[in-house]
Design a protein around this nucleic acid. Structure first.
Lengths: 184, 184
DNA sequence: TAGCATGTAGACAGAATTGTCTACATGGAG
DNA sequence: CTCCATGTAGACAATTCTGTCTACATGCTA
């Protein structure tokens, strides 16, 4: 048959993108590999050749999510002026998007930390890179490290708040208040 | 046989306590009812007579967790002086406990929100009561509502941070900084 | 005393889980 | 030309999951 069009991404990538959407939207344990296989339109053999176990796919998902999210985050911060006041509109953009479902790393740690401890390390690296991106918004000075860690913590709080509030308004206002209070 | 000692709690309560520990520690989807049945030492018929479906047990777990956590939280705040400076030592007490696994409501929303939307409502009610407990630490004035919401958001951030850091030090320092910056 | 809630023991059903297996096709690289 | 990575189709195995079923025991209360 070989009906593979030129625009169609190869199987490995289709699996990863499908897994990303399902894992992020429905959770990891709630998503069976059969579903990923069906939705990505590959066969079981193809799937297991690329990802010998579901855990391998989970790791690949987190790695991919990390890169994708960070690229978006840095780009949004630049678009909004690349200083500390870019944070709130950047978060607003994310929280208001239709497929917003919180932070994939916070969710995954909550779901799998006991079973697959390495997700904690992956989440830590993710947050470190997020903190570094926040640092880049601040003028270099003593205390910038601690300040960006504190801002990142407030942002994590805003992410989970936006996840169970019906609108992101409260989350955004709170994080704006914290930023205003912390920045002299 | 009927070897029921007077101190042994009735089956319904044993099931709930066992479910609480397993759900909170390992996650909800990771915990099968068979495991809860075995650990609580009841039979399947007894289990399903009290909780006709796993979802019923999940609801009961969240309800119980809410009450238990809030009682502890208010008590700890009183023990630490019942003003805004009681927050950090109260959180320290929690974060340093051996079985700390983050906020059961944040974790459950991340895991189940798509499948069981009512957990979002339960989590919102929980957070509202948490916010009310924080309000009680502050002198009544205009803006106390918004201030406690903001503090609660910072606390949520600290909870998830403490969940993937190996020590709660960074989480506690950040929340202390935010409190200091917000309180005049 | 009769009814009822609560309890026990464990087999069973039906679906979903992850993962393996055989058998075959195709296209590019050495 | 031959090897090999990549792909297809779908049966199969082994386990785990939630939930149901029969049959029986006990203790409280109307």
């Amino acid at each position: 048959m070989h009906m593979k069009s030129v625009t169609e991404p190869p199987a490995r990538e289709r699996i990863l993108l499908t897994a990303h959407d399902l894992f992020y939207r429905d959770g990891i344990r709630a998503t069976g590999v059969d579903r990923i296989i069906a939705d990505s339109g590959v066969t079981k053999v193809t799937f297991y050749r690329h990802y010998p176990s579901k855990n391998d796919l989970i790791r690949a998902f987190l790695e991919y999510r990390h890169q994708r999210w960070l690229i978006w985050f840095k780009d949004a911060l630049e678009r909004h002026g690349k200083d500390v006041h870019a944070l709130v509109p950047t978060l607003a953009e994310w929280f208001e998007s239709d497929d917003f479902r919180g932070c994939a790393f916070i969710n995954t740690v909550g779901e799998l930390a006991n079973d697959l401890p390495e997700v904690v390390d992956i989440a830590c690296r993710h947050k470190e890179d997020m903190i570094a991106a926040i640092s880049d918004l601040l003028p270099a000075s003593v205390g910038v490290e601690e300040l960006s860690r504190t801002l990142a913590l407030a942002i994590d709080g805003a992410i989970v708040r936006a996840q169970y509030d019906s609108t992101p308004a409260n989350a955004l206002r709170a994080v704006a208040l914290i930023i205003a209070a912390l920045i002299p």
